[in-house]
């Protein structure tokens, strides 16, 4: 795989972290490296230093919420957010960031949206589609929904980026991005570029938006046995 070289750009002083408690961590790191952004897993309090942004990945939201509480990571995220660190939650990550959850208590509550967990049903209801999201990319963006939540409403100060049928699939405030789908599970680099620019970081421009070298085993380069 010729894209397997880790590119830590010397031009960029600040990195984007991926919260590494459980879930799809390697997948985001892989995408960030493809656009030349310095990326690292974030697990301990000291790992938060020098981050321009933090991605809360997909995984199981109940598990992630427990671990954030037990290991006292929640207050660190909130403090760093107040100091200017940008946030992006994909799927379970969006659940953790939501201001309110249907029928249960919210977790971090850093963006004014209402989310319904597991909005579609079982794995047999997981699906892919495509949508044009002008703010993110001039090309249609491939979307992967895996046991996805639904965003039911967005409050004032929250921009809706994508609506599908009866639900909101992507939204943002000035400091927080949420997507109920998984850009890191497709070849599209559009959302990662968008988040990097939201963090004030310059991503590589010479890569096509839909990376032809990406495939469904690309994540494994960060989870090799050998």
């Amino acid at each position: 795989m010729n894209s397997a070289k880790v590119t830590t750009s010397p031009l960029i002083g600040k990195a984007i972290g991926v919260l590494d408690m459980q879930g799809g961590v390697c997948e985001h790191i892989d995408h960030l490296q493809r656009i030349g952004i310095s990326a690292r897993p974030v697990k301990h309090s000291q790992d938060f230093e020098g981050l321009a942004g933090l991605i809360l990945p997909g995984g199981e939201s109940t598990c992630l919420a427990r671990l954030l509480k037990i290991f006292e990571i929640e207050p660190i995220i909130v403090r760093k957010y107040r100091e200017g660190m940008k946030l992006w939650g994909t799927c379970a990550g969006a659940i953790l960031l939501a201001g309110s959850l249907k029928g249960e208590a919210a977790h971090l509550g850093l963006i004014d949206i209402e989310v319904q967990r597991n909005g579609f049903g079982s794995q047999l209801d997981s699906f892919t589609c495509e949508a044009l999201i002008p703010k993110i990319s001039p090309e249609p963006v491939p979307l992967t929904f895996i046991r996805a939540p639904k965003i039911l409403k967005a409050g004032e100060g929250v921009d809706i980026l994508l609506c599908i049928d009866d639900f909101i699939a992507a939204a943002e405030s000035p400091d927080v991005l949420v997507t109920v789908f998984h850009p890191e599970l497709t070849g599209s680099l559009a959302f990662h570029r968008y988040f990097a620019s939201k963090c004030g970081l310059q991503s590589r421009a010479d890569q096509p938006i839909l990376d032809p070298s990406w495939n469904m085993t690309s994540w494994t380069r960060y989870a090799r046995i050998v």
């Binding site: 459980q22 879930g23 799809g24």
Partner: peptide, 9 residues
């Protein structure tokens, strides 16, 4: 990919 989301769990 669903299994990927279970990693670390």
């Amino acid at each position: 990919q669903l299994a990927q989301m279970l990693k670390g769990g």
